[in-house]
Design a protein around this nucleic acid. Structure first.
Length: 365
DNA sequence: AACGTGGTCAACCGCTTATGT
DNA sequence: AACATAAGCGGTTGACCACGT
């Protein structure tokens, strides 16, 4: 039953690959292919490496047509848009960029692109709640918001708000239908502070984009998963907050990446202490305030020049019309988004009229 | 010159999903 | 159907390098 063991881990070499090892691996695969069995491959060619290591070396470095570094503005824009839309699903993002590996894109995002983009939010003047001593109050939800989910939220807001005023951000007609509890919350907050329903709506969309299952083969799958989540009942925090109740369910994903959201971690770590508190509504208000700040700060302090606006505007280049751009399709071959498709010279980007109009808009930075 | 710091990126680790038996 | 392993994936680590003090 089952398969043969992966490899003898006591006898496998780790660390950087030597030119000799590279040559052996490359020569063999170019001649015989991988044979659909990476585990057996190193033994065949006399390499003291784990099959997984060989696979990674081939996919990320040795295979033909790999591009290293030198990311173009267009690639920056695609990565940025996809990250904000579907999160850190690097393999799907890599499928849109022929010659790029998920590892490369991941590194590029973490080391350069993220800083490049988030650096533009430095002017944010959001004031976190302070206690009577003037110290910033410890708030697990604010902590959670400062994590990757908020990063995506900020980018989402920043990028969308840089578009024309008729974009998704300011056009309720384009908003996807929300779960009734989310609508309820928005109406509640409108009565609480009527100025930021648009921001909140976007916040909810971004939050839902994080409530996804871990695997999705394509951009379409990823976004569809997000759409399913939007209509799911997992909005306890928001719903209860709108009622002034805050019985937090720590099992409910709210923001963050997959099932490891920072909020989950915070809630788990801090136990039941917050269950009876009113922190839920405070947090929603904090979020609302911060979103306002992001947008107002942009409006008042950041007036991009035309050349800056054009910096990431790849959509003018793709198919000549960003209105016609569709990034996903149910017809997209699942395999084309997997790492097996990296040799493909054709990105999966397709044009069509889609069901998720938000993502058709693209971003101008 | 020596040291500290920060950025970059290849490689590894551990988890989830897919698949063979 | 149940089990075990392969494959795939994202997060993290650590070596290397450049730069500043």
């Amino acid at each position: 039953m089952g398969r043969a063991p992966c490899c003898d881990k006591a006898n496998v070499k780790k660390g950087p690959w030597s030119p000799e090892e590279d040559a052996k691996l490359k020569a063999y695969i170019e001649t015989y292919g991988t044979g659909a069995n990476w585990i057996a491959l190193p033994q065949k060619i006399g390499l003291k490496r784990c099959g997984k290591s060989c696979r990674l070396r081939w996919l990320n470095y040795l295979r033909p047509n790999i591009k290293h570094g030198g990311f173009t503005e267009e690639e920056d824009n695609i990565i940025c848009n996809l990250y904000i839309s579907i999160g850190s699903r690097w393999s799907i993002i890599a499928a849109q960029l022929p010659g790029r590996t998920d590892n490369d894109i991941k590194n590029y995002w973490n080391t350069r692109l993220k800083k490049k983009l988030l650096g533009r939010n430095k002017q944010s003047n959001f004031q976190y709640p302070r206690n009577t001593n003037g110290l910033i109050e410890e708030n697990p939800y604010v902590d959670a918001l400062s994590s990757s989910a908020l990063e995506r939220l900020q980018l989402h807001m920043q990028l969308q708000s840089l578009q024309n005023p008729f974009s998704f951000c300011n056009n309720p007609a384009l908003w996807p239908k929300l779960h009734p509890s989310q609508e309820k919350m928005i109406h509640s907050l409108q009565s609480f502070n009527g100025s930021s329903s648009t921001l909140l709506q976007n916040a909810l969309l971004s939050m839902n984009a994080d409530q996804r299952s871990p695997k999705a083969a394509t951009v379409g799958d990823a976004i569809q998963q997000d759409a399913v989540q939007i209509s799911s009942p997992k909005v306890d925090l928001l719903e209860n907050s709108s009622n002034g109740i805050s019985s937090m369910d720590s099992s409910v994903p709210f923001m963050g990446t997959g099932n490891k959201s920072p909020l989950d971690s915070n809630l788990a770590a801090r136990g039941e202490g917050f269950e009876q508190s009113n922190m839920g509504i405070q947090q929603v208000c904090a979020l609302q305030a911060e979103l306002d700040d992001i947008l107002n700060n942009r409006t008042m302090c950041y007036n991009p020049q035309e050349d800056q606006m054009a910096e990431f505007d790849c959509f003018r280049e793709i198919n000549g019309s960003k209105e016609s751009l569709m990034w996903w399709s149910n017809d997209i071959d699942t395999k084309s988004a997997s790492s097996n498709s990296w040799d493909s010279a054709t990105p999966v980007l397709q044009t069509d009229h889609g069901m998720f109009q938000d993502y058709e808009l693209g971003y101008n930075l």
